[in-house]
């Protein structure tokens, strides 16, 4: 089974130290890991560093890789206007580094991934004409079609409607179970993390704050420390943990500022 371990990992971008000293226990296949942290905490940079697009100290240790490229990375959508059809752009991700000729197994893989994400109907549409949510599904397809063992996804649900969010998270969870995939998802929705992720990794200002089972990491004291919010965790009717946000931890400061 594949495992990913970060050891004293740092990252520099444009001469600025963005991440430093990130050490995690081995994250193993079969787990869905939520990567949490405030804006500009370094989540995207961490992905880029793991994938090899950013430089810095420390090591990314991968054990049990069965291919030369075990990691796939789905970046945040940059809002450009790509002019390829959905089918072509997913096939394109599949064919990188390979032969020029497209084989039947490549078509089978693309068709399978499109069906899995429920976007087969979009295959002839130009990616540039899709909505933000549809584009995120295409992005997920582009990552999945590469048959990765480790999948890094940067806010894949940010533009999806609620039902698609649940669908995608359920699908990712199923993939981790069925195929022993390790999926790391950067997200802002702490409720999703609590409901779907096996493990959570929290970073703040370029350093690791916590990494471990979600129920031990996503707790009110940590959320107060990192996000500055007062929260409670209660169970919904289905027995799943729910995050209830009571407000900002420093609300009193805000009131004082208004009074002045």
């Amino acid at each position: 089974m594949v495992s990913l371990q970060l050891q004293d990992l740092g990252a520099r971008v444009g001469g600025r130290q963005i991440l430093s000293g990130i050490t995690t226990p081995p994250l193993t296949g079969g787990n869905l890991v939520a990567l949490l942290g405030p804006n500009a905490a370094g989540k995207s940079t961490l992905f880029r560093r793991i994938f090899g697009l950013a430089r810095g100290g420390g090591q990314v240790n991968i054990q049990g890789a069965t291919s030369a490229r075990p990691i796939a990375y789905m970046p945040q959508d940059n809002g450009g206007r790509p002019v390829l059809s959905v089918y072509e752009s997913v096939l394109l991700a599949r064919m990188q580094g390979g032969r020029l000729k497209v084989g039947p197994e490549d078509h089978a893989k693309v068709a399978h991934v499109l069906a899995m994400l429920n976007i087969t109907d979009l295959r002839a549409r130009s990616v540039g004409d899709l909505s933000g949510g549809q584009r995120q599904m295409v992005g997920a397809a582009q990552a999945l079609v590469q048959d990765p063992q480790i999948l890094l996804m940067d806010e894949p649900t940010s533009a999806l409607d609620l039902s698609r969010q649940l669908d995608l998270m359920a699908l990712l969870r199923r993939l981790t179970r069925d195929r022993d995939l390790l999926i790391v998802v950067a997200m802002h929705d702490l409720g999703h993390a609590l409901r779907h992720a096996d493990q959570a990794m929290v970073i703040d200002r370029g350093g690791l704050v916590a990494c471990g089972p979600t129920s031990e990491v996503v707790v009110p004291s940590l959320l107060r420390q990192v996000f500055g919010v007062e929260t409670r965790i209660e169970c919904c009717s289905a027995g799943l943990p729910q995050l209830i946000v009571d407000g900002r931890a420093d609300e009193s400061c805000l009131c004082r500022a208004v009074a002045v």
């Binding site: 789905m74 790509p82 390829l84 064919m95 580094g97 990616v127 582009q142």
Partner: peptide, 22 residues
């Protein structure tokens, strides 16, 4: 031609092309 797939990927934008290993 040998770089055909990588060059096509460049039309998806730098971030996307990089994420495909270009």
């Amino acid at each position: 031609m040998r770089r055909g797939w990588a060059l096509t990927a460049m039309r998806l934008g730098d971030a996307k092309a990089e994420s495909m290993g270009v």
